[in-house]
């Protein structure tokens, strides 16, 4: 047994890793399912916006299908949606918000409150495609870290965004947000936003792993705080986990997979988990899987009983 950072590497853990490396091509492709699904959702959302803005997609007749962008939008002329973080900043500038944007905010806030806040990050946010690419390339090229930053920096940036909105009288993050830039410029025409994205890509690739999404983005920080209460969680079944650590290797927020802590709760409870599904698709023992929060306790109790 080798001692490795507090956890002893067990024989069955090595076996798990080996199992993972030797899996068939079919199993390999199957393990990409969430990545493929996420890309479909991300591109799909973008496509609905682009189609409405450029090709005048309408439903019902003469009503824009999905008009606007991720800051605020309207679906089939009926359902308003709005980014709660953006409206919070606008609220702090002292502007009295109109009813429609408030309803839209409530809808989106409720949606992610149920689903888990950072579902937005992994499944909708377009910048995620850029940072995922940078992260994947970084692993392929085996680029070592040159700086370390605490991941809590994003919460300070979040606080600063709110304070500065009140001080300057403009929504502080919305005016510099690369998320907004990318989405707007894909839908409404190109400016120089791609330079900001290039900067993020290079920063993530060469300087700090998961730099933007994992350390800086205040929108992600906002959804992390909301996401604690989410209903869809990654269930952790300690009975068959061999502590091989493969999940933490692919996780963009590995601190949420602290095995000691998630053993107690039976799930990945941190709001910083974006439900990207990398770990669940990869886990060689099937210890990690998506589940609804109320069902997790029952499932784990049953698993423990059958293990005894």
């Amino acid at each position: 047994m080798n001692d490795l950072g507090g956890y002893s590497v067990r024989a069955d853990a090595l076996a798990s890793t080996e199992k993972l490396h030797k899996r068939s091509i079919g199993a390999r492709v199957w393990s990409w399912r969430y990545i493929v699904l996420r890309r479909i959702v991300q591109v799909g959302v973008l496509l609905l916006f682009i189609g409405t803005a450029h090709w005048a997609w309408q439903y019902p007749a003469k009503t824009p299908f999905l008009s606007g962008n991720l800051s605020a939008s309207k679906f089939i002329g009926l359902i308003p949606m709005a980014d709660p973080f953006a409206t919070l900043q606008i609220f702090l500038t002292g502007h009295v918000l109109q009813q429609e944007v408030l309803i839209g905010t409530a809808i989106i806030f409720g949606f992610y409150l149920l689903l888990g806040g950072r579902v937005f990050c992994a499944w909708v946010c377009p910048v995620n495609m850029v940072t995922d690419l940078a992260g994947w390339l970084r692993t392929k090229l085996d680029i070592r870290a040159i700086v370390h930053l605490p991941r809590s920096v994003r919460y300070f940036i979040l606080a600063a965004a709110l304070v500065l909105s009140a001080v300057t009288g403009v929504a502080a993050f919305e005016w510099v947000s690369p998320v907004g830039m990318m989405h707007r410029e894909i839908i409404f025409g190109i400016g120089f936003g791609f330079l900001a994205l290039l900067a993020i890509f290079l920063f993530d690739l060469l300087i700090l792993k998961n730099g933007w999404c994992g350390h800086f983005c205040p929108l992600g920080a906002f959804w992390s705080l909301v996401g604690k209460a989410g209903l869809v969680k990654v269930r952790f079944d300690k009975t068959n986990c061999t502590h091989c650590g493969e999940c933490a290797k692919v996780c963009p927020e590995p601190q949420v997979l602290n095995l000691k802590k998630i053993e107690e709760r039976g799930m990945v409870f941190s709001g910083e988990c974006s439900n990207c599904g990398r770990c669940t698709a990869l886990c060689p023992e099937g210890s990690l899987a998506f589940d609804l929060r109320p069902l997790i306790r029952k499932h784990n109790a049953r698993a423990e009983q059958s293990a005894v």
Binding site: A53, S67, A171, E174, G189
Partner: peptide, 23 residues
């Protein structure tokens, strides 16, 4: 302060008059 930069006015304009400023 108030504009949320969503571009719904741009989509609704029947003459393509309105544009959103790029960064």
């Amino acid at each position: 302060a108030a504009c949320i930069k969503c571009g719904q006015c741009v989509v609704s304009c029947p003459y393509d008059t309105l544009k959103l400023a790029g960064s």
